[in-house]
Deep mutational scan, measured.
Amino acid sequence: MGFKLLSKLLVYLTASIMAIASPLAFSVDSSGEYPTVSEIPVGEVRLYQIADGVWSHIATQSFDGAVYPSNGLIVRDGDELLLIDTAWGAKNTAALLAEIEKQIGLPVTRAVSTHFHDDRVGGVDVLRAAGVATYASPSTRRLAEVEGNEIPTHSLEGLSSSGDAVRFGPVELFYPGAAHSTDNLIVYVPSASVLYGGCAIYELSRTSAGNVADADLAEWPTSIERIQQHYPEAQFVIPGHGLPGGLDLLKHTTNVVKAHTNRSVVE
């Protein structure tokens, strides 16, 4: 069995187990497998329904001669939608809004960016022009300005110390501490036991640490421990890039980060 097929099978099995364990909360999309990078042309966006009122959005972007996937989250909030992270750029984010209108038909009224990198804030200006209120932590807003990236308009308070959590509509926002970046936030959907790890969490097929220019490698494993301790009931975990899975993604990420750190020390 090929690795790609095995990865998709694991996603399907995880979703099936969740649907059985929580039949009222989960209505997993039966329309197909989780979209992969090879299936999404740059400039297009796919939506994948995880649970009743919960979707991931998947886009792709060219970077350094390669094409990478990027995940975000959409959560229903009454007759409105909360968006977590842009679709990595203005063109993708405009396509995301169009796809949401086509498939869901509810307005996106608020959006949260989970850290300051372009795959999370690139497209904020498109959201703002569409009347979406954009939010991020003060740290993310400051770092985005320093980096020359787009800056969300509103500040999220109460997320300055490791372990801080605040309720934001249908989700809980959690600051686990520094990891992929010093400002990275985690998003949890309690009604569906869905954990969105953003770039602080890796997919299972990833074996290298990737972009760690703004990471705190020493603190990252401790931050992941905080996530595990705060959300032990999480059933569906979405990484910032690639295929979702279960809580095993947290341990896998820790292993990859520690291996990278150990290699760096040896070198």
Rank of each mutant, 00 (worst) to 15 (best):
A192N: 07
T114R: 00
D85N: 03
S155W: 08
E101C: 04
E101I: 07
H57R: 04
A94R: 14
A136Q: 03
S193P: 05
T261I: 11
L96G: 00
L82Y: 06
A200I: 08
D125E: 13
V257Y: 05
Q103A: 12
D214V: 05
I238Y: 03
S30C: 08
L156V: 09
P138L: 08
S113N: 06
T134L: 03
L82E: 02
S30T: 13
A90I: 07
L243V: 14
V126P: 03
A51E: 09
G122C: 07
F168P: 03
F3W: 07
V171R: 03
G131Y: 04
R142F: 12
T86Q: 00
G163F: 06
I100V: 11
L83H: 00
A192I: 07
T140E: 05
K251H: 11
L47S: 03
D164R: 09
T109K: 14
E44S: 13
D79I: 09
I17A: 14
A200G: 03
I151V: 12
T253K: 03
S62K: 08
N92W: 00
V124T: 10
N71S: 06
E147S: 14
P23L: 12
A136E: 04
N184T: 02
D164H: 10
Y48R: 11
R120T: 02
T261L: 12
W55C: 03
I74A: 05
E39V: 12
V37R: 09
T86G: 00
L156D: 02
D164Q: 13
N71C: 04
S139K: 11
P239A: 03
T93I: 03
R46W: 10
G242Y: 03
W55A: 02
Y196V: 02
P170C: 04
T207L: 12
L195I: 07
E157F: 10
Y12A: 13
Y135R: 01
I227T: 09
S113P: 06
D79W: 08
E101D: 13
I17P: 06
T254M: 13
D79G: 10
S31D: 09
V37S: 15
P107N: 13
G242L: 02
E267T: 07
S223G: 03
H252S: 04
S70Y: 02
L83M: 10
N262K: 11
R110F: 06
T93V: 00
Y34C: 07
G78C: 05
A130T: 11
I227N: 07
A98Q: 13
R141G: 03
W55M: 03
Y188M: 01
H117L: 00
Y196E: 03
N255T: 10
P23N: 10
A165K: 14
D29R: 10
V37Y: 15
Y188R: 01
A136T: 07
V11A: 11
H154Y: 10
G246K: 12
Q228P: 07
A215G: 07
Y135Q: 03
S38V: 08
L247H: 13
E145N: 12
I84N: 01
S205I: 08
D164Y: 07
Y34T: 09
V45F: 04
L217Q: 06
A98D: 11
V146E: 13
T114Y: 00
Y68E: 03
A218R: 12
F3P: 07
V257D: 01
F3S: 10
P138A: 08
L249Y: 07
I50Q: 05
T254D: 13
S113V: 05
S27D: 10
H252D: 02
V108C: 00
A192H: 09
L24H: 11
G210Y: 01
Y175F: 10
E145V: 09
V171N: 04
V45Y: 00
L5C: 15
D216E: 08
D64L: 14
R76P: 04
V108F: 01
L10D: 15
A213I: 14
R110Y: 15
L247D: 08
A133V: 13
P221M: 08
S181L: 01
Q49D: 12
S193G: 12
S155Y: 08
G163Q: 06
D216S: 10
R167L: 11
Q49R: 13
V189K: 00
I224K: 02
L143G: 05
V166R: 10
G158S: 08
H180R: 04
I151F: 08
S193Q: 13
